[in-house]
Write a protein that binds this DNA or RNA. Structure first.
Length: 480
RNA sequence: CGGGGUGUGGCACAGUUUGGUAGUGCGCUUGGUUCGGGACCAAGAGGUCGCAAGUUCGAAUCUUGUCACUCCGACCA
């Protein structure tokens, strides 16, 4: 009882105050610390290790598909940023400017990249000459800066880490295929590795990336029923190529413009992991990106043979390629249980004198805290199975949350009724394609358009707003 | 950018109304007893109260300004 009280004191319940719960977690699980610059966070080793896992998995997928990593400068001259009109209009309000070098004022101010399309375009203009130079499949891991007013760790910071792919193709078809392929890479990564179910869709025109012809996105639903845009993939057509004068000579010896894409995911995904899987005991990490997959807690570790056996198990698991940590610190076993639950370690392995005598140990799954006794014989396999079932259990639970919070509605009144009755979530409703209706639905219901799903059947023939013939099924929701 | 909240040892807070020179719990250090769900005892270390100016014999406390963090809206990965 006393112990329960203590736990309650440490972290705000997610059902009481989701936002507070979130900030409690990022701090208490040791993911970040605040810095002295507003909106700029220190990603602590445990948080950064999650990002490194994400990087490592995605980076190898990109490379399997033929992409190469490159590094662009972090500064963009003002005239370069201004070359594509829609693009600059979209980003200018939130860029940070460098105006001085030392004490000297620069003749032209430089912005700190909010995204690198312009830099890639300038470079592509120099290196693409012939159809033989295509496609160009480049990716960059870096940080970008957007001077946000409201900031939240991982979800919206002024500087954030990301990856931005920028590719050039000979044909529109090929570029569109790339756009969709990369969207699918993101979607698979979320569903398989992060255990986060996502909706694959296209953004409405009002929600497109500045300068894009089409923006595709994956949308996930958080535990509280709000939507999170978790990754985007843009098709640019030849708009940027024309603005930046990127041309090549094709097979028919004609000078033509190539077609372009860009796609990115950010450290925001870590926020998505927290808000999809976390609970009142803390973080819950998907095994694929957990820095520690299994923590071994020796019980009564002062007793003869306990630590020795624990080290033996640790070595076995490590040899099997499992990321394992043995905590042999002086803290009590109970303290350690709570600590690693807060940190979201997917599987806990308890090992005490009684277990050793029986030739077994206890595995505890983080997401549902279920205990199973398993034999130490062949422990690697048992742990691997447990990690797999944790991933599956997490995915199922997230999917059930999303399904129970997805409402099919045919009118604005139905949307309001569904939200009032069941709380925030995804609203599926038809749309005529008119921006006026899109705005009106947001105004009348509070939910904005998230995306036009790539798959999904019409639920009625007419727009939920104006009643005219519907063009698209749209997912609507409140967004982070 | 509008509205609210908060800044006091590493963390969470009390003290502010009624000015008198800083306290509690956790954590930390040392020693001992413990050890299957956040152990206990004892002895220690650690802050001048976000910052700046002002009022006063005297300011954590009053006044003004400022900065930061945070929450709720509008905009955004």
């Amino acid at each position: 009882m006393a112990a329960d009280k203590k736990m309650v004191e440490q972290i705000t319940s997610m059902d009481v105050d989701f936002a507070k719960w979130y900030t409690d977690i990022v701090k208490k699980a040791d993911l970040i610390d605040y810095s002295s610059v507003k909106g700029c966070m220190i990603i602590r080793p445990y948080g950064y290790a999650i990002w490194e896992r994400i990087q490592s998995i995605l980076d190898s997928r990109f490379k399997e598909l033929g992409h190469e990593n490159i590094y662009m400068p972090m500064f963009i001259p003002e005239t370069l940023l201004n070359k594509e009109k829609e693009h600059v209009e979209g980003f200018a309000p939130e860029v940070a400017w460098v105006t001085h070098g030392g004490e000297e004022k620069l003749t032209e101010r430089l912005c700190v990249r909010p995204t690198s399309e312009t830099l890639f375009c300038e470079h592509y203009a120099n290196i693409i000459r012939s159809w033989r130079d295509l496609p160009k499949l480049y990716n960059q891991w870096c940080s970008v800066v957007r001077w946000e007013k409201n900031t939240r760790p991982f979800l919206r910071s002024r500087e954030f880490l990301w990856q931005e792919g920028h590719t050039m193709h000979a044909t529109a078809e090929e570029a569109i295929e790339e756009t969709v392929t990369m969207l699918n890479v993101y979607a698979d990564f979320h569903e398989q590795d992060l255990a986060i179910p996502v909706i694959r869709g296209r953004k409405t025109d009002s929600d497109k990336f500045a300068g894009a012809e089409a923006t595709y996105a994956i949308e996930a639903l958080m535990h509280d029923g709000k939507a999170l845009q978790a990754g985007t993939s843009h098709y640019f057509g030849d708009g940027f190529a024309r603005a930046f004068g990127i041309q090549y000579t094709d097979r028919e010896n004609k000078l033509v413009y190539p077609h372009q894409t860009s796609w990115g995911v950010t450290t925001r995904m870590i926020g998505g992991i927290i808000m999809t899987h976390g609970d009142d005991n803390g973080l819950v990490l998907p095994p694929a990106v957990a820095p520690i997959q299994v923590v071994i807690i020796p019980v009564a570790q002062h007793k003869e043979g306990v630590l020795e056996k624990a080290r033996e198990v640790e070595a076995q698991l490590r040899a099997a390629g499992i990321r394992v940590k043995l905590d042999d610190s002086d803290n009590s076993a109970g303290w350690k249980y709570s600590e690693y639950e807060m940190k979201g370690v997917p599987v806990r392995l308890e090992l005490g004198p009684r277990d050793i005598e029986a030739g077994q140990c206890v595995l505890v799954a983080r997401h549902n805290r279920e205990k199973t006794f398993v034999s130490l014989e062949g422990i690697e396999k048992a742990v691997q199975d447990c990690l797999e079932s944790v991933r599956n259990g997490m995915y199922q639970r997230a999917l059930e949350n999303r399904e129970s919070r997805t409402y099919n509605c045919t009118t604005v009144d139905e949307i309001n009724a569904a939200l009032a009755a069941n709380g925030d979530g995804f609203v599926r409703a038809m749309w005529c394609g008119d921006e006026e209706c899109e705005d009106k639905i947001k105004e009348l219901t509070g939910v904005g358009s998230r995306c036009i799903p790539l798959q999904g059947e019409a639920i009625s023939d007419v727009c939920a707003c104006c009643g005219k013939p519907a063009k698209h099924l749209v997912y609507w929701g409140k967004a982070y």
